[in-house]
């Protein structure tokens, strides 16, 4: 599903450059349930963003579903993101002037699905998240856990192959964290490859593999 070979990434700022990923080799099978751990600034988010085609890498190769992801045009990258990848962020990233249903339906808008149809599908997904009654609420009327579940519904509505989550529970209390992790676990059971960046051992323990990153290199991969 995912293969990285000697992937390097350097950030350049005015004065300095920062070599963040120093040759990442990684293979993740379809349906895998993986977490990435490491110190702050070790390059976890950078790696996840490269996997999600939100950022590009300098050298090496990245194959997603046997396709080389390199030098894509903006339009191609957008199409891959829309079809193959679902994203969940620590800060939810919902559009605050759209209600839950409209937020969830948004990826389908870019698939040219009619408003009526995509809203119906969005309601279905919200129902699966147990948020049917919140469909017409704006994000700022919802709790953190509810917002994250809306974000998850939005991430999976276009039935992506992989779900990438960057500290999805970072802003949640332990109770809600448990609920969200249960949801992600169930989703992984349906066959969706799931990769979670986290600081919490409890979260990492729920996944099947834990990738430990240190100083831009994979230190070891722990199997639970």
């Amino acid at each position: 599903m995912i293969t990285l070979r000697d992937v390097n990434k350097t950030y350049y700022t005015e004065a300095t450059s920062l070599h963040v990923l120093k040759g990442i080799d990684l293979h993740i099978e379809q349906g895998d349930y993986v977490s990435i751990m490491g110190a702050s600034g070790s390059g976890k988010s950078t790696l996840l963003n490269i996997l999600g085609i939100l950022d590009n890498y300098d050298t090496g190769d990245y194959y997603l579903n046997n396709k080389l992801i390199k030098d894509l045009s903006e339009t191609q990258a957008a199409a891959y993101r829309n079809e193959m990848i679902g994203f969940v962020f620590q800060s939810f990233n919902l559009i605050n002037f759209k209600n839950a249903m409209e937020n969830v339906a948004l990826p389908l808008y870019y698939k040219n699905i009619s408003r009526k149809k995509r809203n119906a599908i969005a309601l279905e997904y919200l129902d699966r998240m147990g948020l049917k009654d919140w469909a017409y609420h704006l994000p700022n009327e919802m709790s953190g856990g509810q917002k994250q579940r809306v974000a998850i519904a939005r991430a999976i509505i276009s039935q992506p192959k992989i779900l990438l989550a960057d500290e999805p529970t970072g802003a949640l209390d332990s109770q809600t964290t448990e609920e969200v992790m249960q949801l992600l676990g169930e989703l992984n059971q349906t066959g969706i490859t799931t990769i979670i960046v986290t600081h919490e051992k409890a979260v990492a323990d729920e996944t099947r593999k834990v990738i430990h990153i240190k100083d831009g290199l994979i230190q070891n991969i722990q199997h639970n």
Partner: peptide
């Protein structure tokens, strides 16, 4: 900016 960023992450093509 933020909204546009979110839309792009979701897969909005540059044309749209």
């Amino acid at each position: 900016t933020r909204e546009i960023g979110i839309r792009k992450a979701i897969g909005a093509p540059p044309g749209s």
